[in-house]
Design a protein around this nucleic acid. Structure first.
Length: 518
RNA sequence: CGGGGUGUAGCACAGCCUGGUAGUGCGCCUGGUUUGGGACCAGGAAGUCGUAGGUUCGAAUCCUAUCACCCCGACCA
């Protein structure tokens, strides 16, 4: 039975139904995993929860990294690097922070291995050289960066301190999923220290804005910006701002956060400066981060049943050219045209980069190569064969359209509009994702309707936009009942209006966004 | 960490009930014919059946333990 099903699926694939099985509609979590594999982005490693990021996946990360880094530099930040290992005692300094991360810390207790022979005569390496103070592998770096800041800051003239680091961190997750939740992940963490509360608040806001802009313009993700409820706040923060996206199973995903830390960490790490009036004061700090989770978000937001669909701005290759060589005698002429076109396209610019063009001249069946690039999500595929040479055209297929939707364009015309076509794809992905989110965001005013929205199988679920005046306990109860949480308290004025809380009936002055989340 | 499920070739699986030492499809390699939608023919390589014990003349198959993965929860970016 299962075998028949399998063969049926393969048959369907060959008949051109979908390249990925199961489809999104059939089994979204399985579909996600299949896309990650089919697009050759990453794989699970032998170490639980840790992934191997393959070249195509890392290529996406490099683009994200490079573009964000520019934005950080443009807003006055500098990169630095801090240690992977943090003294355990540092974590203890801020009570809430310690409590929040204690359950997911990897701990280093020894610094040496010794060879021993076990009962069966096997030679084994055994940890020895116990550390007097255990070290933790950073789950985040507030504490160790705080320790550095306390050395670096003496005067108000040393402020603001605007630091970013690109690093890996580790949180011992119980249920890892590639990109979305891995034990080790790559991210950037910004850490800043300011003279005044106002400056720190502005920084928190500014960096949230950078994230929102990046996600909109580079990742083609419409995001809501807002504030987390107390329950969802970063451990140790005074205020947590977030960008929240909707993906295709209508769940919410937190794509990035920016925290206003008040003076909590300054006090914990003793970051003090002498102010303009000569008095000794604690700095005001912020931290903000985005991770490889964004790649998971992009997959879940844009990919389809044929595989990954990459927003052009983060695609490792914008265009792949597939030579069509029916007979060996065509090879020279076709390859000449292919290489000439590639060279020409590489002179074109798309935003701050030259076009990244790959020629796939592997000796494989054309259909196989074609589908490989469809699954990898390359924005534009071009085929050039002998017939094109005669006519001076090329066959162009866009990843945001059907694989059958092939346009035959004069070569020069395509070259001149390549960049604008990429932008059109980029914008189209954004529009599509936005329309999806709007179609699945519903204003809800009664408890019955709210429960129905998330519980009823015939309802699609999504973002419930509702008035709220409940307590933290009410929020917990809702989470227990429906697995639904307040995703964000949106900044957008459109959410401001007088009404009554659907849960408590108390008055409320704005609607919040509720959803199930990753 | 709680509940459920699954571990057999790179991938997806069959075989297990009723023990006799491993198979199918896709993929991979070689040769040929092909090539503008996942091609065809022929030949070939590849698995200590998750791991460790046990029962047995004999274990992929039965028993025990253990590990890993997946799904659902709790936790989280």
């Amino acid at each position: 039975m299962a075998k028949q099903q399998q063969q049926q699926q393969q048959k369907q694939q060959k008949q051109g139904k979908t390249a990925i099985t199961p489809t999104r509609a059939e089994d979204f979590p399985q579909w996600y995993q299949q896309v990650v594999r089919a697009a050759d982005l990453a794989e699970n490693s032998e170490v639980r929860g840790c992934m191997v990021i393959k070249p195509w996946g890392y290529g996406v990360w490099e683009r994200i990294q490079q573009q964000l880094d520019t934005m950080f530099k443009d807003t006055g930040h500098e990169n630095a690097y801090f240690p992977l290992l943090i003294p355990l005692s540092y974590l203890e300094e801020e009570a809430k922070h310690a409590e929040g991360f204690a359950t997911e810390c990897a701990v280093v207790t020894h610094h040496r291995l010794e060879a021993e022979t076990d009962a069966e005569g096997q030679s084994r390496l055994v940890p020895s050289g116990k550390l007097s103070e255990p070290l933790i592998i950073r789950p985040t770096s507030e504490t160790i960066i705080g320790a550095a800041f306390s050395r670096w800051v003496e005067s108000y003239r040393d402020l603001p301190l605007l630091i970013n680091q690109w690093a890996n961190v580790m949180r011992w997750e119980m249920r890892p999923r590639l990109f979305l939740r891995t034990a080790e992940f790559l991210w950037q963490e910004g850490h800043t220290a300011h003279e005044t509360e106002q400056e720190a608040l502005e920084e928190t806001d500014r960096m949230l804005g950078v994230y929102a802009t990046f996600m909109r313009d580079h990742l083609a993700l419409p995001v809501l910006t807002g504030r987390k409820s107390e329950n969802e706040r970063f451990p140790g923060a005074v205020d947590t701002l977030c960008v929240e996206a909707m993906v295709q199973d209508r769940k919410a995903i937190q794509a990035g956060t920016s925290h206003f830390l008040g003076q909590n960490f300054a006090k914990a790490s003793n970051i003090q400066f002498q102010g303009r009036d000569g008095s000794l004061e604690h700095v005001w700090t912020t931290s903000w981060g985005v991770s490889t989770r964004m790649i998971g978000t992009v997959i879940m937001a844009h990919a389809d049943d044929d595989g990954l669909v990459l927003p052009p701005r983060i695609a490792p290759n914008h265009i792949v050219i597939l030579p069509v060589i029916p007979k060996e005698e065509h090879r020279e002429a076709v390859m000449e045209a292919v290489n000439a076109l590639a060279a020409e396209l590489r002179q074109e610019r798309f935003h701050d980069d030259r076009l990244s063009v790959r020629v796939d001249d592997r000796e494989l069946n054309g259909g196989v190569k074609n589908w490989e690039w469809i699954k990898k999500g390359v924005p534009i595929r071009i085929e050039i064969g002998p017939r094109d040479l005669e006519k001076g055209t090329i066959a162009v297929v866009r990843r945001d359209r059907s694989p059958r939707d092939k346009a035959f364009l004069p070569t020069a015309e395509f070259v001149s509009q390549a960049a604008s076509t990429l932008q059109e794809i980029q914008d189209g992905l954004y529009e599509r994702a936005l329309a999806f989110r709007e179609a699945h965001s519903v204003k809800i005013d009664t408890k019955e309707a709210f429960y129905d929205f998330f519980e009823n199988a015939s309802s699609d679920g999504g973002f419930a936009v509702a008035h709220w005046a409940g307590s933290n306990e009410d929020e917990e109860a809702l989470k227990k009942d429906l697995q639904v949480t307040i995703r964000c308290i949106p900044f957008d004025e459109a959410f401001e209006e007088e009404g009554t809380c659907f849960y408590t009936g108390k008055p409320s002055s704005r609607r919040l966004v509720f959803a199930k989340s990753y």
